[in-house]
Write a protein that binds this DNA or RNA. Structure first.
Length: 357
DNA sequence: CTCCAGCAGA
DNA sequence: TCTGCTGGAG
C-alpha cells in the first residue's frame, strides 16, 4: 500500500525523477544558496536564472560583493524589481565580512537578524546549505499543505499559520530537510498549481483531503484583492546642448521607498498635461525652470500597489539650481545609471531616436 | 489589455 | 497592515 509510505518520502521520490535542474542546485555553498533564495523572493525561477548566472560571474563570493559599490550591485540587479533586496544583499555581505569573519552564520536566529532574511529565507538557507532540520514555509508550501490536509481557514490568520507550521514540522524528514524543502517547492510550482492544479499527474492524489472532497480549487482561502489605484505622471526629458555634446538631466531617487537609489528622468504626479501647468509643477517640485516642447512617449506600468501611466515630454532648460540629486549625463552613458523598467525603456528610446525630442 | 504570483521590513 | 516590481499567462 502506497498510502503507508510517509508523505515526505513520496515527495522525495517524485523530486528525484522530476525535480528541476537549476544553476544554484549544483553547488550548495551558503553564498550561492543565499543569493538564489533572495532572488527567488517574489520572483519566478525562469526570471532568476540569467540574473543568478550574471551575478555569480560578477560577484563570485561574499568578499567580492562586500567590496563592490551600490551602483555596481544595482546595475546587475536592474530589472529584477524589489530593489531593497539588492541594497540588503550588499549590507549583509559587509556585515558578514566585518562581524562573522567572512563566514555565513549557520543557526536560524543569526540568519534571521541579517537584512533581507525573514523566517522563510533563513530556514531555506539553513536547511539547504547546512542541512539543518528546518521547514521552509513559503506560499507554495502553504498551498500544498492546505490542500493535502484540507485546511479551510483564511490564510491571513495566525491559526492557519500555526496549523501549517505543525504539519510542516511533523512531515519534515530529518536529515534531508534541504532536499525536501526544495522538493515541496518544485511540487507546488509544477503540480499543485494555484489555478488548475494537475491532480491527475499528482503522486499524492490518493491522500490529498482537498482532492478527495473536491475542494482543491478553493484552497488555500485567500482574501479578496484590494482595488489598485491608477496614477498619472509626467517625466521631463531635459536636454542641454553643448556644441556637439548632448546631455540629459537625471535624478537619483531617495535611498528609501519605491525604486530606492535608482536614477530617473525627473517626474511629477499630474492631473493635467497642459504645458504651462507641467512646467509649473517642475518648478515647484525641483526648482527647475523649463519650457515644454513636445510629447516624447507614453508608457504604462504596474507597481505592487498602484499603476501609472507616465508621459515623457521633451523640455528645454532655462535655468534653475542643479542640486546634488541631479546630474547631467551624456546620452551614451545612460546605461551606467541603474534605472527601473519604465525609465530604462524611455532611456533606450531616447538613445535610439535622439532626433524626436 | 487585465490578472496574477510571490516574502521582508516598518 | 501596508508597501515594495516585474514578467508571463490569459
Amino acid at each position: 500500500m502506497d498510502s503507508i509510505i510517509p508523505l515526505g518520502l513520496r515527495i522525495m521520490q517524485w523530486y528525484e525523477r522530476n525535480g528541476r535542474n537549476l544553476p544554484w542546485r549544483k553547488d550548495k555553498n551558503p553564498y550561492r544558496v543565499w543569493i538564489s533564495e533572495v532572488m527567488l523572493q517574489q520572483t519566478r525561477v525562469e526570471t532568476v536564472i540569467p540574473y543568478f548566472k550574471r551575478w555569480m560571474k560578477r560577484f563570485p563570493n561574499i568578499k567580492s560583493l562586500a567590496e563592490s559599490t551600490e551602483n555596481d550591485v544595482l546595475s546587475v540587479w536592474e530589472g529584477l524589481g524589489y530593489y531593497s533586496r539588492a541594497h540588503n544583499l550588499l549590507k549583509t555581505a559587509r556585515i558578514i565580512m566585518r562581524e562573522f569573519g567572512g563566514k555565513f552564520p549557520r543557526n536560524l536566529e543569526s540568519l534571521k537578524d541579517l537584512p533581507g532574511l525573514g523566517a522563510y529565507s533563513s530556514a531555506a538557507i539553513a536547511s539547504i546549505a547546512y542541512n539543518e532540520n528546518q521547514p521552509a514555509i513559503d506560499g507554495n508550501i502553504r498551498r500544498v499543505y492546505s490542500r493535502l490536509f484540507d485546511i479551510r481557514i483564511s490564510m491571513k490568520t495566525s491559526l492557519f499559520e500555526r496549523r501549517i507550521r505543525r504539519i510542516a514540522e511533523q512531515n519534515l524528514p530529518h536529515g534531508r530537510a534541504g532536499d525536501f524543502n526544495q522538493a515541496l517547492m518544485d511540487f507546488g510550482a509544477m503540480i499543485c498549481l494555484p489555478k488548475q492544479p494537475k491532480c491527475t499527474e499528482c503522486p499524492l492524489e490518493d491522500r490529498c483531503l482537498a482532492f478527495r472532497r473536491g475542494v482543491q480549487n478553493l484552497l488555500p482561502m485567500v482574501g479578496q484583492a484590494t482595488p489598485i489605484p491608477h496614477e498619472q505622471q509626467a517625466a521631463a526629458i531635459i536636454i542641454h546642448k553643448r556644441g556637439k555634446l548632448s546631455k540629459v538631466l537625471l535624478r537619483k531617487r531617495s535611498s528609501k521607498g519605491l525604486l530606492a537609489g535608482l536614477w530617473e528622468f525627473p517626474s511629477v504626479y499630474v492631473n493635467t498635461n497642459q504645458g504651462q501647468e507641467l512646467a509649473r509643477r517642475f518648478l515647484s517640485t525641483f526648482k527647475l525652470k523649463l519650457r515644454k516642447k513636445s510629447l516624447f512617449t507614453t508608457v504604462k506600468h504596474s507597481y505592487s500597489h498602484f499603476r501609472v501611466t507616465l508621459s515623457a515630454y521633451a523640455f528645454t532648460y532655462n535655468s534653475g539650481k542643479i542640486t546634488k540629486d541631479f546630474k547631467w549625463v551624456d546620452l551614451g552613458d545612460l546605461s551606467e545609471y541603474p534605472m527601473g523598467k519604465v525609465n530604462r525603456l524611455i532611456a533606450d528610446q531616447l538613445v535610439l531616436n535622439p532626433n524626436e525630442r
